[in-house]
Amino acid sequence: MTQAFRHAVATSLPIGSDADLAWVRQQVRQAAAELGFGLVQQTKLVTAASELARNTLVHGGGGHVRITPLDSGRDRGLRLSFTDSGPGIRDLDLALTDGYTSGGGLGLGLSGARRLVQEFAVDSRPGEGTTVTVVAWVSGTPPPRSEPG
């Protein structure tokens, strides 16, 4: 059985300055609270969003985030897609390694964000940019996927 999700109105926010980073954090927290995420879940999601927004700004030269509430009537979640047109990630495996940093930080950006959400995907092409998409579920568990056929 296929699980049909209603996508509420998605919000797209620019990421081009430190002020935008604060606005992204605020909007992610508000969307998570409205969906019923608990305080700890909200904090994890906002932390992941903060790391990914900063990466979009610092390493990608800016871009945007698309915030999409997910609601099937039974399962609720939040999808965040961070997109830039920067140089891309040359070695994704290395970039996802704990402790790796290309910018003098703590090296917890991508790997740390990945641990804070239930779903994590990176699409990066050198010279074309990067999109990092994360999904967190109110229950903390992704809904079951149906098998085709």
Rank of each mutant, 00 (worst) to 15 (best):
L96W: 07
H59A: 07
G129I: 00
R115V: 08
G60I: 00
L92Y: 04
D20S: 12
G109P: 01
A113V: 04
Q118K: 08
S72T: 10
T141P: 04
V58K: 05
D18N: 14
R125Q: 12
P69Y: 02
P87T: 05
E147R: 14
V122H: 03
Q3H: 10
G73D: 06
L92K: 09
L35A: 11
F37P: 00
D84L: 00
T141E: 11
R66N: 11
A22K: 14
G73T: 08
D71T: 07
I15T: 02
G105C: 14
Q118A: 11
W137H: 05
L96R: 09
L110P: 00
V135H: 04
F37Q: 03
A49Q: 02
A19I: 10
T83D: 03
A48H: 01
V65L: 05
L80G: 01
S111H: 12
V24W: 00
G36S: 07
A10Q: 14
E34S: 13
S146P: 08
A48V: 03
R66S: 12
G88C: 03
S50I: 04
G127C: 05
Q42Y: 12
R66A: 12
R54C: 10
L80C: 06
D93V: 11
D123V: 09
T56K: 01
E147S: 15
V24Y: 01
G105Y: 11
S124C: 07
L78R: 01
Q26M: 12
D123E: 13
V24G: 01
V122E: 03
V122D: 03
H64Y: 13
E119Q: 14
L80I: 06
L57T: 00
D84A: 01
V46F: 02
D75V: 05
S72D: 10
T47E: 10
V135N: 04
L94P: 02
S12Q: 14
V40F: 15
N55C: 05
A113C: 08
S17A: 13
S50L: 07
Q3C: 10
L96Q: 10
S111W: 07
R6V: 14
A95N: 05
D18H: 15
W23T: 11
Y100C: 06
R115T: 08
L94V: 15
